[in-house]
Amino acid sequence: MAKAKVTFQDIDQTVNVPAGIRVIDVSEKIGAGIIYGCREGDCGTCMMHVVEGWNNLTEPSVLEEKVLRENMASRHDRLACQAQIIGDCTVKPA
């Protein structure tokens, strides 16, 4: 199975993960500072900033783009409950 490294910058912790996993599923287990609301891509609570490896996350859906816009996301912000890891990346709470 393809692997990737995701680094949570706020707690300086890197995790080797199977590719395809959502950021939420890793950050919650490791206790990183990204926090969650609906977990369904609606509320925007889990917005995170992608420090490195923007292209190593799955593309945001039209719905995620909409929620990001409504929550005044800045460039390279994503929803941790939607973004799937497909390569090495570094994230932190937005």
Binding site: Q13, T14, V15, N16, K29
Partner: peptide, 23 residues
């Protein structure tokens, strides 16, 4: 240590962990 940001032993000394090791 998690509160004060001084943790150097808690999760993993080398700061890299495998997902399968997480509870």
């Amino acid at each position: 240590e998690a509160m004060t940001g001084t943790s150097n032993t808690s999760v993993s000394a080398e700061r890299v962990i495998d997902f399968a090791e997480l509870s």
